[in-house]
Design a protein around this nucleic acid. Structure first.
Length: 277
DNA sequence: CGCCAGGGTCTCG
DNA sequence: CGAGACCATGGC
């Protein structure tokens, strides 16, 4: 197809390398290939604009959240120095709108894992259980109905370790209709967080990742080890319970706290990578 | 090689 | 309620 300009501004590398999604692959020419469900997509970036090379324009534009009002979001960033330097370093990073199940499954496997290994687990699960997609190197993420029929050893063979049991139990809860990831989207955030935490392997941190990345709750703040350290630094080392830290994050990071959090997270990781050379 | 990773859950005091 | 142990695996 003829390359089409979809809009922007966007920083594609930062968006796809910031640890919110794990299956995209950067090609030698700088373009990115990935999947939206069962559709193969190829995109690139030119002058801060998203260029579509393969895929359905409106679906891709929605996935990359080109409608998020970045300037309004940036205006709501805290004046606080760490947030401002993260903003300066990560302009154009967008929070994607991911498929619910795929995002839920990926973050169930994420506990005590580095981003690189979450990716390898995702690819292994796709390879073992997913359907082939024409025009794509990788398979689609398997539906929960498919994983519900898998075995724990088969999931462990994908590198999941103790997380295999959680993913399997969650897939079975969804397959038997106990929870409907689409129907619960209309719940208010606090209740939706509680509902998600009914899934095995989903605690408050993973629930907040799912809220932010798959349910458009841009004020949700996942507090992992990185954000934990950053919040403690903002509080000048003053400690507190997880709930107190969450309340602090909410108040301090503002109405788009999830966006601020993602910029802080990505910026901190990139700084460490630079430090290693 | 030893440390730590986008944690959750259960048990104990 | 809060702290600690335990859970597998791989990158660095």
């Amino acid at each position: 197809m003829t390359p089409t300009k979809l809009g922007g501004p966007i920083d594609l590398d930062k968006t796809l390398l910031s640890g919110q999604v794990f299956h995209w692959t950067r090609c030698a020419d700088g373009s990115w290939s990935g999947l939206l469900g069962h559709e193969a997509v190829v995109v690139s970036e030119k002058n801060g604009q998203l260029i579509l090379h393969q895929g359905t324009a409106d679906r891709v534009a929605r996935y990359f959240a080109l409608d998020h009002p970045l300037e309004e979001i940036y205006a709501a960033f805290p004046e606080e120095p760490m947030s401002q330097s993260a903003l300066a370093a990560c302009r154009g990073l967008r929070i994607l709108r991911q498929p619910r199940w795929e995002c839920t499954a990926a973050f169930i496997t994420s506990s005590m894992k580095q981003v690189a290994h979450i990716r390898s687990m995702s690819l292994a699960i796709r390879s073992s259980f997913g359907e082939a997609v024409e025009g794509s190197e990788i398979n689609a993420y398997p539906a929960f109905e498919v994983l519900a029929k898998a075995t724990e050893p088969a999931l462990r063979a994908c590198g999941l370790g103790y997380r295999a049991e959680n993913l399997l139990k969650t897939a079975r809860l969804l397959a038997d209709g106990t929870i409907d990831l689409e129907a619960i989207a209309k719940q208010p955030t606090a209740r939706l967080r509680q509902t998600l935490q009914m899934l095995p392997g989903v605690g408050v941190k993973v629930a907040n990742c799912i809220l932010l990345f798959a349910y458009e709750r841009l004020d949700a703040v996942p507090i992992d080890t990185w954000i934990h350290r950053i919040l403690l630094a903002m509080r000048k080392g003053r400690k507190g319970t997880p709930a107190q830290l969450a309340t602090y994050a909410h108040r301090r990071l503002g109405p788009y706290a999830g966006y601020v959090q993602q910029y802080l997270f990505h910026h901190a990781r990139m700084m460490k990578k630079e430090g290693r050379g």
